[in-house]
Structure formats: structure tokens, C-alpha cells
Computed example of a mutant assay.
Amino acid sequence: MEAAQTPRTAAELGDWLTRTVADYVRCDPAEIDPDVPLSDYGLDSISATTVCADIEDHFGLPVEVTLIWDHPTIGKLSQALAEELETAVR
């Protein structure tokens, strides 16, 4: 995906994260509630590390694996990533 097409808003990031997490926990993205902790869906430390690597690869934004534990829901994580991406652009 080109940089111009890369999701930047919290809503766009939330959609991308929902699809990504759903792939890892093997469920339909529609089953992921943005306000439910990711651990409730079975996202473990190995999957969390892989999601962080996907974020780095997809957005070119280095993130610590603790980001997921500090922001344990799709809603909180997407907001944090939107803020990080905004800061990185400046």
C-alpha cells in the first residue's frame, strides 16, 4: 500500500487493526468489538508481537510490543497509533 493510501485516522486504523487481529484470532472481523480487550479474543503475547511487526511493516512506524498491552482494545490502540503517526509526520 502506498503512503498516500495508508490509513491515518483512528477509524481507518481501527478497521485495519480489526481485520488484522481477526486474522490472528481466527474470527470474522464483525465479531471484534473495538471496546473489548484483545486478550478476551485470545490474542496472546506471540500474536501481539506479530501484530506489532505488522504495524511496523505496514505503516513504517516502529512500535514497542507493550503498545498493545498499554492500549488493550482496538479503539484505544487505533487512537494511540493515529497520534503516533501524526507525530511521526511532523
Rank of each mutant, 00 (worst) to 15 (best):
M1I: 10
M1K: 12
E2Y: 13
E2F: 14
A3E: 15
A3M: 14
A4P: 07
A4D: 15
A4F: 12
Q5H: 13
Q5G: 10
Q5T: 12
T6Q: 15
T6A: 13
T6E: 15
T6W: 10
T6P: 03
R8P: 00
R8T: 10
T9H: 00
A11V: 10
A11L: 10
L13E: 01
L13G: 00
G14D: 02
G14Q: 02
G14K: 00
D15A: 14
D15V: 12
W16V: 08
L17A: 03
L17Q: 03
L17F: 01
T18I: 05
T18A: 08
R19W: 05
R19E: 14
T20E: 10
T20G: 04
V21A: 00
V21K: 04
A22M: 05
A22F: 02
A22W: 05
A22R: 02
D23W: 08
D23G: 12
Y24F: 15
Y24S: 04
Y24G: 05
Y24M: 00
V25L: 07
C27I: 11
D28W: 08
P29V: 06
A30R: 08
E31V: 10
D33H: 12
P34D: 15
P34F: 07
V36L: 10
V36C: 03
P37T: 10
L38W: 08
L38C: 01
S39M: 10
D40G: 03
D40C: 09
D40I: 04
Y41D: 10
Y41N: 06
G42N: 06
G42C: 04
L43C: 09
L43P: 08
T50E: 15
T50D: 15
V51I: 13
V51Y: 03
V51W: 00
C52R: 09
A53S: 15
D54V: 06
D54R: 11
I55C: 03
D57W: 09
D57K: 07
H58Y: 12
F59C: 05
F59W: 07
F59H: 08
G60V: 06
G60N: 09
L61P: 04
P62T: 08
V63M: 01
E64M: 01
E64G: 04
V65I: 06
V65H: 05
T66G: 12
L67T: 02
L67F: 05
L67E: 04
I68T: 07
W69Y: 13
D70I: 03
D70G: 03
D70F: 02
H71C: 07
H71R: 12
H71V: 07
H71E: 13
I74T: 04
I74M: 06
I74S: 03
G75H: 13
G75T: 08
G75L: 11
K76S: 13
K76E: 15
K76A: 14
K76P: 00
S78G: 09
Q79L: 14
Q79N: 13
L81R: 01
L81K: 08
L81Y: 08
L81I: 08
A82W: 02
A82R: 05
A82H: 02
E83A: 11
E84S: 11
E84D: 13
L85R: 06
E86W: 07
E86H: 11
T87I: 11
T87F: 10
A88I: 05
V89K: 12
V89L: 13
V89E: 15
V89T: 14
V89D: 15
R90C: 06
R90N: 10
